[in-house]
Nucleic acid binder design. Structure first.
Lengths: 207, 207
DNA sequence: TTAAATAATATACACATTGTTGATTAACAC
DNA sequence: GTGTTAATCAACAATGTGTATATTATTTAA
C-alpha cells in the first residue's frame, strides 16, 4: 500500500511531523493546530509540510488510513485462516484470538490512536472506528439472529455494542493500557454474554 | 441560570447565531466554521457576534451549558421526589420514568445535540456527556456492587455502559428519533439486564 | 409619546495563518 | 562523483481574527 520511499529525508520529515502532531494533539486538540505550529515543533520549513500534505486534514487522514489498513489486515488474515463451519451456533471464545490481536495492534499504535480517541480528539475518527467495529459484528453475527428471539431492534443493538467496544478501547488507552490485551478481550466477551448487570455483581429485581 | 435579558434584540441575535451554528455544523463541522461564516449566515454584523461571544468556542460552551443544566435539573428533581428505601436490591423499572424524561429533553433539543454528537461533531461534548452518564450510574449503583460477585473491573464496566448509552442516543438522533423515548429507555434497561447476546436472540455456546 | 439607554451597524486597523511561488542550498541514491 | 530531488528561504495575495470608534436603529421605561 505504501510505495517505496527510498529517500531517507522523506521518512525523517514525515516522522518528525507526526511526532509534532501527536504532541500538539495532546496540547490543544486537532482544531487548534496550525501548520505553523506543526512545522515549528517539528523544526522543519513550513513549505516542506506542503510538499507532503495538502493541509492538516490530509495529515490526519493519512495517519488514519494506516490504522484502518492495519486493522483490516489482521481481520482478513484471521478469517482467511479460519476453517470453522459455523452453522447454527458458535463459541464466543473462538473469537478471543482475533480480539487479542486487534488490541495488540492498537497498543502498538497507542500514541496516535489515543489522541484521536481522547477528549480533544477527532469525532470523525471515532465514528469511523465505531463503524468498522459494527460492520465486522454485523458480518459475523447477523446469520445467527433468530428473528423471533430478538428483544431489541438489531440496529439499536449494534449501536449499543459498537459504542461499548469503542468506549472500552478509549478507557483502556486512557488508563495507559493497565491491562493486557487478553484481559480486555475477556472483559468484552464476558459482558456481551452475561450482560452489564450480571458481570457487575449487582443484585437487582427484574421487573 | 440565564439572567433576565429584557432586550428583544439580544434574544433575536443569539437565536439567529445559534440557528446558523447548527446549519454550519451540519455542513462543515465545528472546526471549519469561522466567525465570518456564522455572521454571514445569520445575517448580522460580525462585530455584533463579539458583543455576545468571545469566539466560536465560547458559543459552543454556552450552548453546551444549557444542555447540561437541563439534564441536571431533571435528574435532581427526580431523585428529590423519590422516597424509595433502596437497600440491598432495586427494581430497574423504577428508573424508567427518569430515563424517559431525559430522552424527552434530548428530543426537545435534538437539533443542537445531534450535530454535536454527529460525525462532524465535537468530541469534547461527547466526552462530557458520557462522563455525566457515568457519574450518575456510579452514584446510584455503586452501593449495590458486591465485590465477590464482580466479574469485570468496575471502571471498565462503567466505561462500557456509559459509552453504550451515549452510542444509543447518537443512533436514536441519527435515525431521526424513529422510536419513542419509552422505547429507547426500555431498550437500555433490557440490554443491561439480559446482556447484548441474549437480547439479540443469538444462540451461542458460552465457553 | 418621548427621551435615555443600548444594541446593531459600518468601517478600519494590525496581526496571524494560509497556500503558493521561484530561486537556492543540501542531502541522497546510484 | 554526479545527477536527482528534498529541504530551505523569502516573498506574495488572500482570508480570518479580534478590537476600536463613530453612527444608526431599536427598545425600554417614564
Amino acid at each position: 500500500m505504501i510505495p517505496k520511499k527510498t529517500d531517507r529525508r522523506i521518512f525523517r520529515t514525515k516522522r518528525m511531523i507526526m511526532e509534532a502532531f501527536i504532541l500538539l494533539m495532546e496540547e490543544k486538540g486537532f482544531e487548534a493546530i496550525t501548520v505553523s505550529d506543526l512545522t515549528e515543533k517539528a523544526d522543519i520549513n513550513r513549505g516542506t509540510f506542503y510538499q507532503h500534505y495538502k493541509d492538516k486534514y490530509d495529515l490526519l487522514e493519512q495517519g488514519e488510513e494506516e490504522i484502518f489498513e492495519g486493522l483490516k489486515k489482521i481481520v482478513d488474515t484471521f478469517w482467511h485462516n479460519e476453517n470453522y463451519d459455523y452453522e447454527e451456533v458458535m463459541n464466543v471464545d473462538d473469537l478471543l484470538p482475533l480480539s487479542i490481536q486487534l488490541f495488540e495492534f492498537i497498543g502498538d499504535n497507542s500514541k496516535f490512536i489515543k489522541v484521536l480517541l481522547g477528549a480533544k480528539g477527532n469525532s470523525a475518527f471515532q465514528n469511523k472506528l465505531k463503524n468498522v467495529i459494527m460492520d465486522n459484528l454485523l458480518l459475523r453475527f447477523s446469520q445467527f439472529l433468530k428473528e423471533d428471539h430478538v428483544i431489541v431492534p438489531p440496529d439499536y443493538l449494534l449501536a449499543y455494542i459498537g459504542s461499548a467496544h469503542l468506549g472500552l478501547i478509549q478507557h483502556w488507552l486512557e488508563c495507559g493500557m493497565d491491562r493486557s490485551p487478553e484481559d480486555i478481550a475477556r472483559i468484552l466477551s464476558q459482558t456481551a454474554i452475561f450482560g452489564p448487570v450480571k458481570v457487575s455483581g449487582i443484585q437487582i429485581f427484574q421487573g
